[in-house]
Amino acid sequence: MAIVYQKSKGLTDLEMHYCPGCTHGVIHKLVAEALVDLNLLEHTIGVAPVGCSVFAYNYFNCDMHEAAHGRAPAVATGIKRVLPQNTVFTYQGDGDLAAIGTAEIIHAAMRGEHFTTIFVNNAIYGMTGGQMAPTTLVGQKATTAPHGRDRAHYGQPLHMAEIMATIGGAAYSTRVTVVDMPHMMKARTAIRKAFQMQMEGKGFTFVEVLSTCPTNWGMTPVEALGWVKDTMINEFPLGVFKDADSKEGS
């Protein structure tokens, strides 16, 4: 019997702890498959964040380094400067990357560090129980914004993929999502391209992935997927904001 589909060798056999309907698992799989298919896995060092994906170091089947909250880009800088021939990536959520770690991600991009950042944006702090994130939408409820994010009090969401595109050292910045198969295929292509550009020495590469958090959004998994498509994408448009390989994107 021919095997037509199996779990990626880029993932370990450990059962993931993610909530039902959360798309972290899909994003993990796309990253792992890209590393295997591009023949990079054995030379890869991943940096795990603090947040829902804090245990990512147990799931990726490559050398892993757990960072403090927000510091993954600095840790990845240290690793990549020691091992310039290896593949290095960070996997970070929105609180980690867009709040406490804003300085680290901006300056890693500024220096054109040759690693890839997978930025998972679910518009909320998931692990700590649904607090407001810098990416929380205006009006969206959170445990620290019980009446919804108030623009006058908290301002508006940060658009990290667009910000990254303004930085000289960034070679590639894109926003994708994984809420259905066509979008997953586009995300798959984007993640592969980011790793390829890293290994070609093009510069810093950044893939923002819009993700779901049914638990903290107070939705069913299906409703959460729908909310990304109907509401979140309006705030965070999908697309390529910078691509050093093509003039249109730059």
């Binding site: 380094h65 600095a74 840790v75 240290g78 690793i79 400067r81 091992l83 300056h107």
Partner: peptide, 12 residues
């Protein structure tokens, strides 16, 4: 950031 770069480099 500097000490976290040290953390990454030392890990490698």
């Amino acid at each position: 950031a500097a000490i976290n770069m040290v953390y990454g480099a030392a890990g490698s």
